[in-house]
Simulated scan of single mutants.
Amino acid sequence: MALILMKQIIVLFLMMGCGLVVVKLGMLKVEDSKALSVITLYLLLPSVVIHSFDIEYTPEVMSGFLLALAAALVFHGILFVICTVLSSIFHLGAVEKCSLIYTNAGNIIMPLAAALLGEEWQIYATAFLAVQMTILFSHGQSVMEGKPGINWKKIVTNPNMIAVVAGLVLFLTPLQLPDVLADTMTSMARAVGPVSMIMLGMALADIEWKKLFTGKRVYGMVLARMVLLPLVAVIFLRTWGTLSSVPDSRSILLVTLLAAITPTAATITQMAQLYNQDAAYASAINVMTTVVCVVTMPLMVMLYMM
C-alpha cells in the first residue's frame, strides 16, 4: 500500500511539474492559476463530493461515514490541544497555528482515495472535508483575521458544504440524479486531480527557492506538520480502527489518515494575503510540506498498515 501511495504521489507531482513548465516556458502566467483555482473550488470539488455519495445506501456505508466523521472531529480536537501546547512553548503566530491544523486534503485526498481504494471510498473523505471546512471558516479565519467570531455565511455558502448536503440527500433518499447529470458529475470528478495539481505547479513557478530554505523556523513547522502530527494521527486512528466494530474500519480510517497527513492547506496562503499576515512564510510552509510529502506520507501509511 505504501509503495502504491508513493507511486500515486509521484504521478501527482508530475502533473504539478506540467503546471510549473508551462509557466516557465512563458505559455501561461502565475496569475492564470487563479482561474484553475476557481474551477477546482466551485466546480470540480463539489462534483467529486456529490459523485462520492452516488452509491447505494446501506447501513454499513452509513456507519462507515459516521465513523469517519467522528474520527475527523476527535482528531481535530487533538490537533487543537497539541497546537495550544506548542504555541505556549514556541509562541506560534497565526500563520503557523493554521498551517499545523489545516491540511491540503481538499486538493489531494479525493484522487488519492480513488486511486488507492476505489471511487466508492471517496464518501469517507467527504466526512473529513466537511469537518475541516467548517472549522477553517470559523476558527481558522478568526485566527488569521485576529478577530473572534464565526463567519456562518462563509460556511453555509461554501460550495463544497452545499455539495455535502446535496450528496447526503441523494444518499439517504430515493432521489437520483438524471443519467446525463450523473455522467457529467463523474467526468468532472475525475478531472480534480490533474487540474488541482497543475494549478499548484503554476503557483510554484515564482517561488524564490533560495529564500525558501533560509528560514530556520520553517523547518520546525515542516517537522511538526509532516512528522509529529502524522505520527499522532497514525497512533490515534490505528487504535480506533482496532477497537471499532464497524466493518472495514481500518480501511475507512485509512482514508481519514490520508487526509490528516497531507501538506499544509494552500488556503492558508490565500487567507494570509487577505488578512495581511506573512503570506510568503505561509507559502514557504506549503511548498516545503508538499515537497516532503512524497516521502512522509508513504512512511505514515506503512506504519498504519503494520
Rank of each mutant, 00 (worst) to 15 (best):
I4K: 14
K7N: 12
K7A: 10
Q8A: 12
I9G: 02
I10Q: 04
V11Q: 05
L25H: 03
V30W: 03
D32E: 15
D32R: 08
D32V: 02
L36M: 13
L36C: 07
S37A: 11
T40I: 14
T40S: 14
L45Q: 11
V49D: 07
H51E: 15
H51R: 15
F53R: 09
F53T: 11
I55H: 02
T58H: 15
T58N: 13
T58D: 10
P59G: 09
V61W: 04
S63M: 12
F65Y: 15
A68D: 11
A72I: 07
L79Q: 08
F80N: 06
S88F: 08
F90H: 10
H91D: 11
C98I: 02
L100D: 10
L100A: 04
T103F: 01
N107R: 03
I109N: 05
A113N: 06
L116C: 04
E120T: 14
I123V: 15
A127Q: 08
Q132G: 02
I135H: 07
Q141L: 13
V143Q: 08
G146H: 09
G146V: 02
G146N: 06
P148K: 04
P148V: 14
W152C: 13
K153R: 14
I155W: 08
V156S: 11
N160F: 05
I162F: 02
V165A: 15
V165G: 12
A166R: 09
L170V: 12
P174N: 06
L177V: 15
D179C: 10
M188R: 04
R190F: 10
D206P: 04
K211R: 10
R217A: 09
Y219H: 13
A224H: 01
P230L: 00
I235F: 10
L237T: 01
L237N: 03
T239I: 07
S245A: 11
D248Y: 00
S249R: 06
I252H: 03
L253S: 10
L254P: 02
A266R: 02
T267M: 12
I268T: 12
T269C: 06
Q270A: 13
M271T: 05
M271P: 01
A272L: 12
Q273F: 01
Q273I: 04
Y275N: 11
Q277K: 11
A284K: 05
V287H: 01
T289L: 03
L299F: 09
V301D: 05
L303H: 01
Y304D: 05
